[in-house]
Amino acid sequence: MRPKTLILRTAGTNCDAETDMAFQLAGAETALVHIQHLISDKVNLADYQILAIPGGFSYGDDIAAGILLAIEMKHKLTDALNRFVEDGKLIIGICNGFQVLVRTGLLPGKDTSEMAQQATLAMNTSSKFECRWVDLETQESPCVFTKGVKARVYLPVAHAEGRFTAPANVLSELEANNQVVFRYAESRYPNNPNGSDSNIAGICDATGKIFGLMPHPERFLTKWNHPRWTRVAKTQETPSEEGDGLVIFKNAVDYVKSNLL
């Protein structure tokens, strides 16, 4: 049986097709599901092992990025989400999905199931939307999505509200639990594209099963996505056509295969 991934959609979701492709390439069975179908019980979240919240501008990011979808999930999918987490299933939020996970309180997460927000993704210090590739440093963490990921990964970001910030106690707890998964490799702008605290680009919950990140691994599925692939000498054939982002999705699929099926 192939692991089943639910890719959540709503008004303004726009990275769903490439997230779908990423999970398919990783070997998952996927379904693009509008949140209305979960709310109306047409689709049952419990039938899936992975929940992916893709990038985009859910509900136009009105009020603040991801907040309306987060409220909708917290209040209309409370039980289903809690059970999903209790069952030890996997959740990944990319870009807008990360913003949603932070605003639901699922990230950084804590013992209670109250889903209270503890951190935020604020406006970039540059005050504008920016699209660029950045170097990331992979950290030691319990995150199941990043097992065996290279120490340094190059991925694109594209956002206006990506500055991770939290009170000092939350930050120190994150560090103490090794919940920081990716950091921007340099603290200077533009490689830290948004001015995040401690250069944080992605975090997981204490179990490592809920993962959120601002960069877009689903935009680096093949070598041709790399912005400098034409600089590699034509004679020097790279052994693989796979992009460095795919491993994150493969890890999720492998984890489900070994632990949840």
Partner: peptide, 16 residues
């Protein structure tokens, strides 16, 4: 840079 040129995941030659 203010335009998202990577969304949809298919870009192979970027504007920059």
């Amino acid at each position: 840079r203010q335009y998202d040129h990577g969304v949809q995941g298919g870009m192979v030659i970027n504007p920059l």
